[in-house]
Every structure is written in structure tokens, then in C-alpha cells.
Design a protein around this nucleic acid. Sequence first.
DNA 1: CTGTTAGCGCCTTCAA
DNA 2: TTGAAGGCGCTAACAG
Lengths: 358, 358
Amino acid sequence: MRKPDVKVKNIKDLAAVLGISVTTVSRVLNGKASLYRISPATSDKVMNAAREFNYFPNSIARGLRLEKTETLGLIIPDISNPFFASMARTIELESRRQGYSIILCDSMDDMQTEKELLQLLGSRRVDGIILAPVGKKFDHIRECGKKGIPVVIIDRYMPGGSIPFITADNYQGARDAVEHLISAGHRTIACIQGLKGISINTDRVNGYTDALKSHGLPVDESLITGDDFGIENGYASTRMLMNRDNPPTAIFAFSNLIALGVLRALNEYGLHIPADVSVVSFDDQPWFEFLASPMTTVEQPREKIAGMAVDVLLDLIKNKSSGAKTGIMLKPALIIRNSVGRPAAASSRVSAAGTKPV
Amino acid sequence: MRKPDVKVKNIKDLAAVLGISVTTVSRVLNGKASLYRISPATSDKVMNAAREFNYFPNSIARGLRLEKTETLGLIIPDISNPFFASMARTIELESRRQGYSIILCDSMDDMQTEKELLQLLGSRRVDGIILAPVGKKFDHIRECGKKGIPVVIIDRYMPGGSIPFITADNYQGARDAVEHLISAGHRTIACIQGLKGISINTDRVNGYTDALKSHGLPVDESLITGDDFGIENGYASTRMLMNRDNPPTAIFAFSNLIALGVLRALNEYGLHIPADVSVVSFDDQPWFEFLASPMTTVEQPREKIAGMAVDVLLDLIKNKSSGAKTGIMLKPALIIRNSVGRPAAASSRVSAAGTKPV
DNA sequence: CTGTTAGCGCCTTCAA
DNA sequence: TTGAAGGCGCTAACAG
């Protein structure tokens, strides 16, 4: 211990204490000692002093000089949604492992907010952005890319677009789910979709209809309902569905939140899963297996999506490789539990649906 | 539109285009036009040009100059835990509303990582830190405060310490839960605790024992089990508990994750809630009401905790008010659903517990 | 009312 | 093998 009482906040202070130049200190601290053939003696002296005085370089100044902040922006529609939260976790961990920090932004599923966030991150000079976009418009994102900040999209993507994306194969996932329902004997299968017009939703609807068609079943447009990934939509759509003259024997919920709404509505009607109606949901949750009837789900490989997003983005940042492959689609998995059974006799369900909720 | 072809990346460039000084531009952009009595004509000119050329000030340079980054660090043990995720959301939203961004860090419930994160955030020159600490040691946190970065602790706190904290009244929450169990007729009540020795755990255990004592019930130390807030602990502890000669008729789980483990174990034993055993959990979850038996829980006021944490931290940052009140404790709420019933006859449970899991 | 200029802490070119 | 000095973009004295 030399003089722990001296305040060292600068590289200059440190150099002064050691009686050498800031240049040398900087070089040592950046691991360029051997490159500049700095004597081991000097090098050690610097390293020890840095530790001794508890000196950490000012990343802000560094960022200004180097024109890179080693910071990534992460924009997510709702961080309290476990689906996004778990991806955020992987992204943070993996980024940090590679020396980058994350600025977290919640767009509240609002397009205007997303737009502002993109500018905010730009002015904060992040080196790149991982974005789970809210809507169907991508102009503002493309513009961001033009301004030199690489962007990688997760979850949703721009069909035929130029922005790299990582997502699950939603078409296949939906198709698998519906095939499963069909093979259990269901013929009247409803789906409660999320935001209409966005890629993942369209893909899922296509998977749904194709599964039906491939089994020679008719596609009843009125069984495709909903317009939002939230819980309220699941609730309202289910009520609407179960009040039909000919209610579905199975419901395919396009998100875990929608599924929650479905459960609530079914619960109020006194309808049981899978005895009265079968349910399959997108996006697995740890608690799905503890429900009254453990939920059969289509699980997206979130960890992989998140991890690859970081890798692709950092590749874009470091190698300026304008992304040979612009899009990656990962296989989802159908997790079969206990929310799907043989279709019930129509009569029992109708009468039950006629009951007023508690 | 003047010349959208000219690249404006500087305040200097912008000043050049307008033929005025950088000072004036800077002043206008920082809303100090009237303070310096800048003519409205000039002011408008600047504002329009900024918009026109899509100019955003470089926050990095600004941070260097001002010695403040308008960035807050947020360290959380596990962002994929919905309890923390929802607080993170409120913190992000509220901070942004007040002009601050969030650097998100996941400490993976690891003390060493937490320590490193604190240094990382220090070198990134965040203006303040909101921290949900991992462990029982607080030296590294205190040290961080000494170095000039204000820290506010959430969830856990340092008993008798000097670091400001916002937390729920865990003692009261636990006490309420156990009183509820007692009033339902339970006498053999187990609790599965989290990390021993940390404030919230100790408070909950005290609430548990005091509730028992105040009703003249004996405190059986062997019914206080567990050592971690995770799902595995809930699972293992429940198995251990139900294999006793005299298994509890009710279980109080100290976290939602522990509750999940309890459910899994009970499920394997073929034990039903609340017919065979009653359960109360800490930390409400949206899906708790859709379980086979909707879960009765102690809910912490997360939004309020998160919001106040931001307010207290920003107050510390802006007013350097060294926190008149160093700790705030918020009232929790007992949400009664359907996981608590009258205690079952002991014989049935014992025989059930003897059954091998599926 | 507006402008000139000196740094904030760091890295790097150029010079020795 | 080591230094000196300029400048990244911005703001705030200090001067008009």
C-alpha cells in the first residue's frame, strides 16, 4: 500500500502518482503493454497501482473518444410478461459476458413510445439495439439502421425485409398444436389471436388453417377471433365463443396471457378443461403444469432466440458484416400435458354456457 | 426543408449551418433561451433546424462534461422472476418519465457478481443505483455509497443500517397469513423459508412465530424448514415435511417459487389443496387464481415499492438530501382465495403421504 | 442578446 | 520503450 489517502480519479492522477505518462498507463490498462513493448516492471507497477487506488477508467470519456459505448439497447413491449422477461435475462447475461451492458426500455406495446425509444437510444449512442417490435410498421426501425446503429429484431419480424431477425417458427408451432387437437377428435376448433397483421400472428393463423385444410376440415372464419395478446382479449373472446349456438370444443390461445383470459372465462361459466373444452396455449410458463388441468403448450426456444440475437448483433457491430443471413427461424416444441381431451357432447356445453357467471 | 443532404452530427455542424455560435445553439436546445434572453427568431431557427436535420445531442459528451449521465443502475437477483420483473417495469417507466435511463443487471443471486456489478456501474458513471441485494453482507454496498454513488435498496434491507431502503412489512404479512391459517383451525403449520439470515426472511419467520405464540400455540422449530427462495427448495422441503410422522396440515411458502415446488410435491403425493393440506404463499401472481385451488397469498405492494425507490433515489441524486428517513416499510395485503380450508383428519394425510409419487 | 474558449477523461498519432 | 499533444461533442465561465 502506497498512499491510499490520495484520491485517484483520473488516468492523469494515476500517472502522476507513478511519475510516468498517461499514455503508458492507458496502454497498460488496455492490455497493449506487449504491443508497445512496455517493460514488465512498468506494466506491473501500473496494474498494482490501479488496484491499490481502486481506479476504474471512466467509460463515458472512453465512449466519447472511441465512439462506442459498449452498451446495447433492449426494447421490449412489456418486461413484466414472463416471456419477455426470460429473454431479457438471457440477453443481459450473454451481453455482459461479452463486455456489453444493457439499457432496458419498455415500450408499453405502444408504437409512438417505441419510436421515441429508438431515438433516445440513438442519442445515448448505444452500439446496437435488440428490439421486440410492437406493431406492423417498420419504417422507423429501418431508418435507425440507416443512421448506423445495427438493429436485430426478435419475436416478430418484417416479412421480406432487410432487418435481421430471430424468431420461432410460428407457423409450424401453430400447425403442430392444431394437428394435436384434430387427432384428439376435435372438429370445431377456435383460435384466439393476438395483434392482427403482425408476422407472428399471421404465421400462426396460417398454421392453424393449413392444419385444418390438410385434414379436409372446413375453415370457419368466425372461429378465428381476437385482436390482442392480452388477458382481456382472451376473456372476452372466450365468452363470445362459448355463447355461440355451436361453441367450439377446443380453443387455441395465441399467448399465455390470452390463455389466462380463457381460463378466467371458462371458470366463470363452470366449464372444465379438458372435460368440457380443450385448450392449447402458446408460450410455456412454469406454472402451466400446476393448473387444475396442466396446460398443453407450444414452447418457443426463448433462450436460443435471445442468445442468438446477442450473437448476431455483436457480429454486426464488430465485423460490420451486413448479415449474410437476414433471418433465422427456430423450431418450437409442443409440450403435451393435460388440457386436451376428446370433444365433449355438444349439449352439455351449451347448457353450461347458458349459465350466468358467478 | 433547407438542406437535408448536409450531415449534421454536431452541435458545431448545426451552428455552422445556421451561421451562429455553438453556445447559442446549446442554450436553445437546453431550454435556456429565455434565461439568456435569446431572440425568439433565433430560438425558433435553432429548433426548426434541429428537427429538420434530425439532430440529437450526444449524451455521452454531455455526460462527460456535466459529470452526470442521467442513467440509473438496476441490479436484480433474477429478472425472469415475475416479482422482480414487474418492479423492474415500474422502475424503468418511472425513471424514464423523469428523464433517466436504466442499465439492467442480473446478479444471478450471486454475491460476487453483485459486487462486480456495483463496480461496473460505477465505472459507467451511473448517477445512482437501485439494488435488490443478494445476501447478508452489505459492506460492498456501503462502500459504493461512500464513493459518491447514491444507492437505494429494495426488497431486502440492512437492519439498523445507513442505506435507505424500501420494502414491504414482511413481519406483518407473515403474521397475517399465519393468523388466517390459525383461524381456519390449523395447529400444525409449517413454513418453508428462503435464504436464512436475510432481513425479509427473518422478519417473516418472526411474524410466523409471533402469530403462533399470540394464540398460545407451541412453536415447533422442526416445522420451520428450507433455506432458499427457489422452486427446488419448495419441492424438497414439502416432501420432507409430508413424510413426517406428524405432517403439517398447512404450509406457508415464503415465495411464489417455493409455492410452485410445494404444488409439485403435493401433486406427486396425490394430496389435494385445501382438502388434504392448506397452503398460503408470499408474492401474488396473475396465475395464482387459476390454479386447481386458487392460491391465498400475501401480496407486496410492488408498484409502490418500485415507484418510491425511484423517487427516493432521484431525491438523493438531485438534492443530495442524505435521506432524512432511511427506511420505508409498506403494508402488504392478504389476498384470500381458496387454498385454505379446515384441517383434514391426520390419518388420511399420513397414508396418502406414504404413497409413492407418480 | 451572442460569441470565444477552456476543459470533462480518454486514446492515439506523431515524435523522440 | 516512452511522452506530448490534439481532439471526441458538449457546456459554462468569461467577454463582449
